[in-house]
């Protein structure tokens, strides 16, 4: 055990640097993904047919063509057209678009899951579509979508390891470097690696779980135990 902490403290500047890259990709990717998910999800239920079809096409495109391919487009193809994003931005945009498309399915599903009679009530009160969505439908869907978004957030954190493929030095990279150091070795290096990722994912997941509890309390519901794996599987397929 002392070897473990010795190795971690020896490598702490590198691990810190790697964690910084991983966290930046996770945080940046999550922000982009959330914006994409909300915009595409709302378009998907809007009364305007063009928006619905447009969002469908975009979502199916990003869901269907693998994260790595999209990332390579940003990293290898875009520079050929004069758009030369730094690796970090490629990662953030790539992760954001891909997980945003998955997230939009969760958002759409949750908005659709709000009882139809709630929509009818808003009509009976002459509320406009934007008003009804903002004040009545979204607040109810929010609690429903959080478990699904939570699962996707954990996947996004894991997805940041694609950084390796575009030459970024993230946590995974430094774990491999540690592993090659005979003083550290396989088990300590990967023990540290798994622990770091697990803690980051756990922190994100617990944070979102708190939000979920709060949302459910607001709706006067008991906290749910459902983990909505089915919805998540459907979103990422």
């Amino acid at each position: 055990m002392s070897d473990f902490f010795q190795a971690i403290s020896d490598y702490s500047p590198y691990l810190w640097e790697g964690a910084r890259v991983t966290l930046a990709l996770s945080g940046g990717g999550a922000v982009v993904a959330l914006v994409v998910a909300v915009v595409l999800g709302l378009c998907a239920i809007s009364p305007v047919a063009v928006l619905r079809v447009g969002s469908r096409v975009i979502v199916e495109f990003f869901r269907g063509t693998s994260l790595v391919v999209q990332l390579f487009f940003l990293f290898y193809v875009f520079p050929l057209f004069g758009i030369d994003l730094p690796g970090m931005w490629c990662g953030i945009v790539g992760l954001g678009l891909n997980y945003g498309a998955y997230g939009s399915e969760v958002v759409r599903g949750s908005l659709n899951a709000v009882a139809k009679v709630q929509w009818e009530s808003t009509t009976a009160l002459s509320m406009s579509w934007p008003l009804a969505v903002r004040r009545v439908i979204w607040p109810q869907a929010w609690g429903l979508m959080l478990p699904g978004l939570n699962n996707l957030m954990v996947m996004l954190v894991k997805g940041t390891a694609v950084a390796l493929l575009i030459g970024l030095h993230d946590l995974t990279y430094w774990v491999e470097v540690m592993r090659k150091d005979p003083e550290v070795g396989l088990w300590i290096a990967y023990g540290a690696g798994f622990l770091f990722y697990y803690l980051i994912a756990l922190a994100c997941s617990s944070g979102l779980r708190l939000l979920e509890r709060r949302a459910q309390r607001r709706l006067g519901l008991a906290p749910s135990k459902t983990r909505t794996t089915r919805a998540t599987a459907e979103a990422v397929a």
Partner: peptide, 25 residues
Amino acid sequence: MVFQQFNLFPNMTVCENIIEAPVHV
């Protein structure tokens, strides 16, 4: 209209349910 199933908005208090449309519509 008043519905068979009440259809109050669960994300709002009683007062918020009542003033929502008068204020925003």
